[in-house]
Design a protein around this nucleic acid. Structure first.
Lengths: 223, 223
DNA sequence: GTCTATAACTAGATAGAC
DNA sequence: GTCTATCTAGTTATAGAC
């Protein structure tokens, strides 16, 4: 994890210091000066490595995403149902992000700005977004019973949108250990599995086509 | 609109100046100093009336909400179907907020913080939230065919949540004149009407009960 | 050319005088 | 209610060391 070169070590030291201080006293209450001092570097030096306070957050968000990908196979192992797999996937995310929850709001304030590179919808986030959708692909692909072909192609991206919605809820969740978010997932994941299982019903074809074309149209307009 | 007392006049002058500058150059690029200067007051005086730059935005957001309530009966007049009434309601909101769209992101960045009084879910926003749900009540109550009793009680609040989701989308919408958001509403409102119409189907009772209790549980945990 | 340190600048927010 | 002076913290500029 700690890079070879001196610069990479400094960079890691700054992220570590920031993480510790954010956790201890929150995002807004942590000054760049305090981070630099705690990391044993100058203020100017901290800005040499991170162009802004937000970019610093991106640093350990990326770390977490990597760890999420690494540990996903292990938590999916032995789970067949789509709801179980989806719940395990999100539970792992909650577990990894739990320490950051107290200051997640400070982070997501900026992610809420679509013009910000931190936004999950921004061009700058495209690699991270693609990687996240690929994780959903892994959740979907080995599910049993298999996902109906009708919705198979779109499902990972739709589930990623669901994930983003859950994250939004999680950020706002003031309940103890974000129990409300866990409840939300435990109740909605089975609903999703149920609806997906019905995707081949003739009565639902019109609605599925409606939703699919709507998504395609919206994506086209967003470009 | 312009209050009698000198204080109310000053306050209105500050809001007007802020609105003009935000529209002209955006939220971030407009400094409190520029607003104060443009309004012909000192910086300290601007802070006497508005504790923060964000609170200033709340000022004309409240103005808009009042106007929305006043003009709603006129746009609902003659419309029967739930989808048509819902679409008209949201279209009016888009029309009133369109001038603010360019800097809406600066505003919603803070509304995304549940701890902020600007959040629609905050205790400070309770009056505005209740008023907004009452507007949805008006959309629902005279709809024809009438909404099934099974979901009638919860529907206004659920539709308000839908409205908040649409607003989130609208804020991020970079398409010309927010056409993507209008498309989203025009396509999803009929889906909502269709689903609501099916609320009395025995096959759906379990899911409706699930959703209702989930909402109730989440609200209980949020308190 | 890669890193580090210090000083200066900007803008949100506050304190205290009138 | 209104002002001026001041503080704080994010960010930038710049100069120097390895």
């Amino acid at each position: 994890m700690t890079g070879r070169t001196r610069g990479e070590q400094t960079k890691a030291a700054i992220i570590d210091a920031a993480l510790a201080l954010f956790t201890e006293r929150g995002f807004d209450a942590t000054t760049m000066r305090a981070i630099a001092e705690s990391a044993g570097v100058s203020l100017g030096n901290a800005y040499y490595y991170f162009r802004s306070k937000d970019e610093l957050v991106q640093g350990f968000y990326d770390r977490t995403a990597v760890e999420h990908g690494e540990r996903l196979p292990e938590v999916l192992d032995g789970l067949d149902g789509l709801a179980d797999r989806l719940t395990a996937h999100l539970d792992l995310w909650f577990e990894l992000m739990a320490p950051q929850h107290p200051f997640a709001v400070g982070f997501f304030r900026n992610a809420a700005d679509p013009a910000s590179p931190l936004s999950p919808f921004s061009a700058a986030s495209a690699p991270a977004r693609t990687a996240a959708i690929e994780l959903m692909e892994r959740v979907v692909e080995d599910a049993a019973p298999p996902v109906p072909a009708t919705v198979r192609a779109q499902l990972p991206e739709v589930l990623w949108l669901y994930h983003m919605g859950v994250v939004l809820f999680w950020v706002h969740d003031r309940s103890v250990e974000q129990a409300a978010t866990r409840l939300l997932v435990r109740r909605t994941a089975p609903m999703i599995e149920r609806v997906v299982a019905l995707a081949d019903l003739p009565a639902l074809q019109a609605t599925i086509v409606d939703l699919t074309t709507l998504l395609a149209d919206l994506k086209a307009m967003a470009g």
